[in-house]
Amino acid sequence: MTSWEKKQFFWGWLFILPTMLGLIILNIVPMFQTLYQSFFRTGDFGKGNVFIGLENYEKLIHDPEVWQSLFNTFKYAIVEVPLSIIIALVLAVFLNRKMRGRSIYRTIYFLPMVVAPAAVAMVWRWLYNSQFGLLNHMMHVKIEWISNPHIAWISIAIIGVWSAIGYNMVLFLAGLQEIPRDYYEAADIDGASGPRMFFNITIPLLSPTIFFVMVTSIIGAFQVFDLIYMVMDETNTALPKTQTIVYLFYRYSFAYNNKGYGSAIVMLLLCVIILITVFQMIGQKKWVHYN
């Protein structure tokens, strides 16, 4: 190694060290601790854990609540991910043109991202309230938005979409700026229509960004917790049909004080997310164009 390479090596590592440390301490070590803990029946206050092998996983396989929650999570993701991507993409394309008040619109759409998720959920909880909620009041109906098992999961997903649009939009805007104007000018001269340009130029050239947003959105959707926790009460009849796998993990780990089983549940989620991400990585070869 030449001295230049050594220097590069040294400074390179030095610059990523803070992030690496954060990742190791906050993510990677706890990940293995969780895996380890999932083989134990945990004692009070983290003391006196008893090794029980695969017992937690055995219970997990036969627990209908777990599979129902996993199904609920899928339902949530299927509504939340496509909607938040499509709406954000359309908004980004419109807000990428020259128009008056563009910055204001961009800021408005991004604002939900700045608000604490718990506050967002609290506001929506009251909007949705069947007795005193603004939504029912304005529409003169009595819909039980968050306690009817058939629609509660959609109501929750709507909050998710609303809070995710702004962030996705900014990512798409950044991606759109990378596309050279020449393509559009050439297409314009050839007489291509707006939608045609969108599908034949914008989408293919934006596909790396779309792919990134999709992977992170899906992972985010599978990890949704705060919305359910803040919006749904424990006695809500719609809870069994709405609670996600992370919510279940929280209940077992912190409310029921059964951290071992909670860890097993979250390991299941990890496997599901890894599987989905692997499929996406394979699938991307078919539709993502890196220049």
Partner: peptide
């Protein structure tokens, strides 16, 4: 009593 769904959203004290 009110609908159980209503009661699960709004506490008895508020009602």
């Amino acid at each position: 009593c009110p609908d159980p769904t209503t009661m699960s959203e709004t506490g008895t004290d508020v009602m």
